[in-house]
């Protein structure tokens, strides 16, 4: 389970104090897949960094199981390591026996159908392949909570669909707790049990939608499209507000 209580995050800038996140409360049940949707700049990534202990909140707390896995928009595979060593990196840090690591690496590479690339270097893989490796580099640590920061944001449509299927399959098998950040509403509806809509600066939660559609879902399912249209309407006002704010800010600079 993941619990975020009364979270604030403030930054000091030349202009004064900017509130990135304001009084955010969110509970993700064990085994629940929650998608966090909001316009860009609403503090989604900041929130994930705080949950992953890579950043500290100004106020408030997060209560969670110990082991978190984090996936970025950029695969951030280590270019100096072969694919298999990238996947094995976390386990090596734990000092696990080599034989056992190799077995696990093979198992997970098989899971995303990339076994034949184990001795390749990251630059030899396509964008989708890299993100698949990033996914299993996280999963191999068997984290209790998966934090995903727009992991498929930079992929083409077809590769993305492929990854939705892979992710749903894996999730249906072991039901991890997932907090998935995206600005793509249809993606959120396609993947999540619950879609949480965030407001623009300062980021807080505006509304939640429970998605009960049967799994596995596809992006092109009629129900998914319908549901996402409802949520998009909700978000539209938010986006308008960001545009207004940016214009206001730009005027101030000029």
């Amino acid at each position: 389970m993941l619990q975020i209580n009364g979270l604030f995050k403030e930054y000091k800038t030349g202009e004064g104090v900017v509130t990135a996140i304001q009084d955010l409360n969110l509970t993700v049940q064990k085994g629940e897949f929650v998608c966090l949707v909001g316009p860009s700049g609403c503090g989604k990534s900041t929130l994930l960094n705080i949950v992953a202990d890579l950043d500290t909140p100004s106020k408030g707390e997060t209560i969670k199981e110990k082991k978190c896995g984090l996936m970025f928009q950029d695969p951030t595979l280590f270019p100096w390591l072969k694919v298999k060593d990238n996947v094995a990196f976390g386990l090596k840090m734990t000092g696990m026996d080599k034989e056992e690591i190799n077995k696990k690496v093979d198992y997970y590479l098989d899971l995303v159908r990339l076994k034949e690339f184990k001795n390749a270097y990251p630059h030899e893989l396509s964008g989708g392949m890299k993100q698949r490796i990033a996914l299993i580099r996280m999963l191999i640590m068997e984290p209790e909570i998966l934090l995903m920061d727009e992991p498929f944001g930079s992929l083409d449509a077809q590769t993305r669909e492929d990854l939705y299927a892979i992710l749903q399959n894996i999730w249906l098998k072991n039901k991890k707790t997932v907090l998935f950040v995206t600005h793509n509403v249809r993606e959120a509806v396609c993947l999540g049990d619950r879609v949480v809509v965030m407001t623009a600066r300062p980021g807080k939660i505006k509304k939640e939608f429970i998605i009960t559609l049967p799994r596995p879902r596809e992006l092109s399912d009629m129900e998914v499209i319908k549901m996402s249209n409802i949520i998009k309407e909700e978000l539209r006002n938010e986006i308008q507000q960001v545009i207004k704010e940016t214009e206001h800010y730009e005027k101030k600079i000029i």
Partner: peptide, 15 residues
């Protein structure tokens, strides 16, 4: 160094 490499290293348990 890209800060994401450091983040990835930390999250994967590097001391």
């Amino acid at each position: 160094i890209s800060s994401n490499y450091i983040k990835a290293g930390l999250i994967l348990g590097a001391n």
